[in-house]
Simulated scan of single mutants.
Amino acid sequence: MSDQFPGWHGTTIIAVRKGGEVVVAGDGQVSLGQTVIKGSARKVRRLSPGGHDVVAGFAGSTADAFTLLERLESKLEATPGQLQRACVDLAKDWRTDKYLQKLEAMLIVTDGAQLYVITGAGDVLEPEHDVAAIGSGGNFALAAARGLAEKTDLSAEEIARKAMAIAADICVYTNGNLTVETIQP
């Protein structure tokens, strides 16, 4: 038996912008090594600091992600209505603070007008093609959503749900138990 603690895996989060709205969807599976620990985790959250709605989805360590969400909420309270500034401030802290540097998670955040992926490397990325995805099945969901968005008249929610279903069929760390949040600018 290995001395190393098996890694937590899991999650697929996707954000799709189309038709004046942004939909963020996340699966519910949390795995430890090869074992599914929970199938109904809620990894997409609506935050309302200062009365400004923001939807955030996270992938990676749950405790680390909650720490980052709390920090993001504090940044949003300090800079109401300025999502980009709050995201950049969080990314700077995450990259430079010795405690935060150890956190293993990623975030997708949106206020309906702006959409960002935030990483521990200090990245605040605006996705191309109005689709962003993170997590174990993120690349599968991203590819599916981009194909669906370009060649169909499906709504943002329909694209997100279909892309997540495809990811769940391919990625063993992704399930079909979804949390879906919609936000408009």
Rank of each mutant, 00 (worst) to 15 (best):
A65F: 09
A56Q: 08
S48L: 15
K38R: 12
G57F: 05
F66Y: 09
F66A: 05
S31L: 07
K43D: 01
G39C: 02
A59H: 02
G39T: 10
V44H: 04
D53R: 11
Q34K: 13
R42F: 04
P49S: 01
G33Y: 14
A59Y: 03
S48I: 15
Q34R: 11
V44F: 09
P49F: 05
A65S: 15
V36F: 12
E70I: 07
S48T: 12
V55M: 13
L68E: 04
L69I: 14
S61Q: 12
S31E: 00
A59E: 05
G51F: 08
V36N: 15
G57A: 00
V44A: 03
A56D: 05
V54N: 06
T35W: 13
E70Y: 10
E70C: 00
Q34S: 13
V36I: 14
T35I: 13
G39D: 09
I37L: 03
V44T: 00
P49W: 06
G39Y: 10
A59N: 03
V36E: 15
A65T: 05
E70Q: 04
A41H: 05
V54E: 02
L32H: 12
P49L: 07
E70K: 11
G57K: 04
R45P: 07
G57E: 00
L47C: 04
A56L: 11
A56C: 15
P49C: 03
D64E: 06
A63E: 06
G39P: 03
T62E: 06
G39V: 08
S61N: 12
V36L: 14
A63Q: 12
K43P: 06
V54F: 09
G50S: 13
L69Q: 10
H52P: 01
L68V: 08
G50H: 01
T62D: 04
V36D: 15
Q34T: 15
L69F: 07
R46L: 11
I37E: 00
K38D: 06
S31Y: 01
L32K: 14
K43V: 00
D53E: 14
G50Q: 07
S40N: 10
G50K: 08
A56R: 06
L68N: 00
I37S: 07
H52S: 15
F58P: 05
S40Y: 04
V36A: 15
V36H: 12
T67M: 04
K43E: 06
I37T: 04
S40M: 08
G51E: 06
L69P: 02
A41W: 01
A63C: 11
S31N: 07
V54G: 06
R46P: 11
T67A: 08
V44D: 02
A65G: 15
S61I: 05
A59D: 03
L47R: 00
R46V: 14
A56V: 14
R46Q: 10
L69W: 06
A65E: 10
D53Q: 11
L32R: 15
L32P: 11
A59I: 01
S48E: 15
Q34E: 14
T35K: 13
V55P: 04
Q34N: 12
G60F: 04
L69C: 09
T62I: 10
P49N: 05
T62R: 07
R42K: 15
S48D: 14
G33E: 14
H52N: 12
